[in-house]
């Protein structure tokens, strides 16, 4: 199966669940900004969660099915259409060769993930297919897509993917009744981001801590896959010691000089020297992955224990969804 990119969109790259084993050499984790949507898109076509997906940023991208396709998409950056026909998210889609698929506006978020049965076929670099543009490796030649790029699916299909394809195949676009209800895996209040206390939480003025938890923060235009610069009440320090650089990770909120905050995201540095006021709960990080400049968020406290419990419950839920899909076809 393969597609040809007709319009690449603002920033389209290949991503998987990230590059986990080279952090000590300064290689960022990378991977999908909204891992939940990426995993849902993979599950819907019978892939493993870690298969490479296309991460589209906003809409205005277009591609052509050069062969019959089994694809799925999830996320809040765009909706997919084929001509006049709307294509539903979060379920497998059979697309016959020759179809032209367009991403159209969905103002809810920023990123949309497109999976294909078998996963997108690019070489693994340092154990991952994720694109890391800064060092120009991973994904498709270490770069965002351009018009004319052709992307192939990898072989072979999982048994599940083959069964899903068999159940849908034909001459027309088709999809099943079922879908993976991603919304049920997300909190209802999507602009409240739950955070744990960071290691340097006690370095800040108590009035700043009150501001942190009670006033909104807005993503500035200086926001990208490395991190989001947050505009809002200034965070003042009581302890002015220099922090010796130490490991940071996606979801870490650093307080830079001048008291402004940066929320680190997928392509963030592996180490940092700014004090860390908070760490976003892993279950809420996919919500952060859908934010865009101008969006405002509020931080709500959560204990380490509760954050871990929610994470493990979420993983359990995702595991059950995979089994439910398998039970339909195998």
């Amino acid at each position: 199966m393969n597609i040809r990119i007709l319009k690449p969109g603002l920033l389209s790259t290949l991503q998987d669940m990230g590059r986990r084993y080279f952090l000590s050499q300064g290689v960022p984790l990378s991977g999908s900004m909204d891992t939940l949507s990426a995993r849902v898109a993979n599950k819907a076509v019978g892939n493993d969660d870690d298969a490479a997906v296309i991460e589209f940023t906003y809409a205005d991208a277009q591609f052509k099915a050069e062969t019959d396709l089994l694809i799925a998409y999830a996320g809040d950056g765009a909706k997919l259409i084929a001509g006049e026909q709307k294509l539903p998210a979060e379920r497998p889609l059979f697309i016959p060769a020759g179809s032209i698929i367009e991403l159209i506006n969905n103002s809810a978020g920023s990123h949309t993930y497109l999976s294909i049965a078998g996963g997108w076929d690019v070489p693994e670099i340092l154990g991952s297919k994720s694109t890391y543009i800064t060092a120009a490796f991973g994904g498709l030649e270490g770069r965002p897509f351009r018009a004319g790029d052709v992307l192939n699916s990898a072989d072979p299909l999982t048994e599940l993917s083959a069964k899903i394809l068999e159940s849908l195949g034909g001459a027309q676009i088709s999809y099943p009744e079922w879908s993976i209800p991603r919304q049920l895996l997300l909190p209802s209040e999507r602009k409240n981001i739950r955070v744990m206390r960071g290691p340097e939480f006690t370095w800040f003025e108590s009035t700043s801590i009150v501001d942190f938890f009670s006033t909104p923060y807005t993503l500035s235009r200086q926001s990208n896959r490395m991190g989001y610069h947050l505009e809002g009440a200034v965070i003042r320090r009581t302890k002015t010691d220099e922090l010796l650089s130490t490991a940071v990770t996606p979801g870490t909120i650093q307080v830079a000089g001048g008291g402004s905050m940066v929320l680190l995201m997928a392509d963030c540095q592996t180490t940092g020297g700014y004090p860390r006021i908070a760490q976003v709960a892993a279950v809420d990080l996919p919500l952060c992955g859908q934010l865009k400049p101008g969006d405002s968020i509020n931080f709500k406290g959560i204990s380490r224990q509760d954050a871990e419990k929610l994470y493990l419950e979420g993983e359990q839920h995702l595991h059950k969804l995979s089994i439910a899909i398998k039970n339909r076809y195998l």
Binding site: R20, Y21, F22, L23, S24, L244, S245, T246, A247, T249, T270, T271
Partner: peptide
């Protein structure tokens, strides 16, 4: 265990 990251005074395990 995935990996460990050394820094000036710390080692972080992921």
């Amino acid at each position: 265990f995935y990996t460990a990251v050394p820094a000036y005074t710390t080692l972080s395990v992921f």
